[in-house]
């Protein structure tokens, strides 16, 4: 059972070591062939008593990962760069289609559905967490 839980934690990227932060359900949207940009999504639970923030994401696969927020106001969809994504104590923040997302230029060769990509999340308190994000065809 313990082994099974450990395996589950590994496969879903649920690692709650660092200050009570748990990163879950990371995935990267497969891009259409030749599309210049890709997006990634995940959920961060901050189970600790301390406010924190996501301040950056890095990956050997993507040279530069930006943090963005999409928002549709008065029928207009817009994307904005964000410097940090607040992670309030005992809160949960979802990066999901149409909202916060990670955005990166599509590398060559293009990652396709079924592949897994390592992402390292950098937090305001200096902590880091690595997750394996599967590339998926559609939400």
């Amino acid at each position: 059972m313990r082994f099974l839980l450990a395996l589950l934690a590994l496969t879903t990227g649920m690692v709650s070591a660092d200050g009570g932060l748990a990163v879950q359900n990371a995935w990267i949207r497969e891009a259409p062939p030749g599309a210049s940009m890709m997006a990634a999504y995940l959920t961060i639970d901050n189970g600790s008593d301390q406010d924190n923030a996501l301040v950056g994401v890095s990956s050997p696969t993507f040279p530069r990962i930006m943090m963005h927020r999409s928002e549709t106001v008065d029928g207009i969809a817009r994307m904005q760069h964000v410097e940090r994504i607040a992670l309030p104590a005992h809160g949960s923040v979802e990066l999901a289609p149409g909202g916060y997302h990670l955005m990166m230029a599509t590398p060559d060769p293009q990652p396709v559905a079924g592949e897994r990509v390592a992402l390292t999340l950098h937090f305001a308190d200096g902590g880091e967490q690595q997750v394996m994000a599967p590339v998926k065809k559609k939400p």
Binding site: A35, M37, G98
Partner: peptide, 15 residues
Amino acid sequence: FGYTHCPDVCPTSLS
């Protein structure tokens, strides 16, 4: 209406 450099809203809408 959109643009292909848009990896979030446009693929979501087209899907």
